[in-house]
Nucleic acid binder design. Structure first.
Lengths: 275, 275
DNA sequence: GGAGCGCTGTATCGTATGTTACGTATTTTG
DNA sequence: CAAAATACGTAACATACGATACAGCGCTCC
């Protein structure tokens, strides 16, 4: 049964030609406000011509554009009157693929942050914002992208940020550059990688401050870490989820940026001008 | 300070003549839907003539009726996009989470999935699981780690998964390997990168199926994309958040894994034995 | 490689919509 | 109570909007 226009679109998206599909996608992306504007505005937003928009609504079964708009308005009105039923997607009909996954992920995040004090986050942010030392980031097989993500952002607002990539021998050689004032951010969830543990140990011996992102069972690296962030990773999937750790990373990026605002702003402006 | 039109009306209701007051009252009663309809319908509902409606909106300070309608639409859009602020007095449910960053991120995810049908996810997963073609992944400056993350997982469960890294010229040369049966997954949020757009266009010309992860304003690549996933990225930070897209990526990874379970399991066992 | 089909954009058209002018009704004030 | 001012509706107007006809183009299938 199809109750909302959004469902109707999703249902027929596959059978639509390219232009109309673009119309459909821009409508979904800004649902439903774009559909309440004029055909001209809608077509401009979608990057197609007006007739394509009209053909699109015709394909959905409407006689004309005003009728389509009325239908959208009715839907909106119904939503506004009963906030409980303001679901665009039916609330997980019969074990949908997405919903349990999403629910678990949201729970993971709430749980992760519940065990994470503001104080701890602030401490780590302060450490990362301390410009007297360098910042190194590294991750495991599946978590290295998180290290890259964080490095890409931090590198914009401060100098001396390095992501350690490539062969194990490559980063081992970088140990020589690391000292007491430096920070090493490690992402390691199970199955924990021996190479990372060895690396962390050597860095620790050199006095490097280690910030560890791991799962709730704690990587052995936690022994050497100054700060440990334990994220929930369990989801109904064959894989573990790194989403909670990802959000912690983004939160830290935001916090560091705020602390470096003064210098950071100047630096970012300089960067812009270099383009 | 007056932020909504409803407040504006309440403010000036006393100074209005009878006819316009009736207009104001019917608008408040069916706020804001009546205001989105035509002048004729509005006037009929209020039991007054069309010019009265126009004088009413003029008194509110609008130059003409369309301007008034746009203002109402903007207000509605703002409400719809931030479910947290939907309730007039958000009492921060669930024991006041300290981090507004987290709250915004959770909202973004809910909102993103609300605009994402199970059908669409299933379609994309099926496409990614189709082993007749190759899968390429690439991302922008800050989103490339997401491409890597997805590639790292997909590569485990099926062959012919390639992450496109390095110089622009590198991936451009890989175009020669791409054809109709292949899929190109692109991550591109603003500020959209020209190099990616060019690349997407060329790939599209070769008949490659493009799956685009972007923000709600849609990268220009949406023009060429077969599937578009529009994630919410707004957070109280200097940066945009890719967390919602990350979760969608994980969801897709899970779905593809499930579809390839039979072959995938065998493959994973083979891999394990290779260690 | 050629013929047919389907999709898309340009240009044109008709019309519904917002707008304005004007006359009448109603209220207000001296 | 009279006269003026304000408010309101009717009707004509102009514009902007949606709709349609048509031609160019790319694609698929012989």
């Amino acid at each position: 049964m199809i109750s909302s226009i959004a469902e109707l679109i999703a249902d027929r998206l596959g059978t639509m030609p390219a232009g109309e599909r673009r119309a459909a996608q821009t409508l979904i992306a800004n649902y439903p406000m774009i559909g309440l504007k004029t055909v001209a505005e809608f077509s401009a937003a979608a990057g197609v011509s007006s007739p394509t928009i009209l053909r699109f609504v015709a394909r959905l079964g409407f006689q004309n554009y005003p009728e389509f708009q009325s239908s959208l308005q009715d839907e909106l009105a119904a939503q506004l009157q009963s906030p409980a039923t303001r679901t665009l997607n039916p609330p997980s009909p019969g074990g949908g693929t997405a919903s349990p996954m999403l629910e678990a992920t949201l729970d993971n995040m709430r749980e992760t942050f519940r065990h994470l004090s503001d104080r701890q986050l602030a401490d780590i942010a302060a450490r990362l914002a301390d410009r007297r030392g360098k910042t190194f980031l590294i991750g495991g097989r599946f978590t290295d992208p998180l290290a890259r993500y964080m490095a890409a952002h931090l590198a914009v607002i401060q100098p001396d940020v390095f992501h350690l990539a490539g062969q194990e021998s490559m980063w081992r050689d970088r140990l020589i550059d690391m000292g007491k004032r430096d920070v090493l951010v490690i992402f390691d969830i199970r199955r924990y990688q021996d190479s990372l543990v060895r690396f962390a140990e050597k860095a620790h011996q050199r006095g490097v401050q280690i910030v560890l992102f791991t799962d709730q069972w704690l990587s052995p690296i936690a022994r050497f870490a100054r700060h440990v962030i334990a994220g929930r990773t369990a989801v109904p999937s064959a894989w573990d989820s790194s989403a909670a750790l990802f959000v912690v990373a983004e939160t830290l990026i935001g916090a560091v940026t705020r602390q470096l605002e003064a210098e950071g702003a100047k630096r970012i402006r300089e960067m812009e001008s270099l383009r």
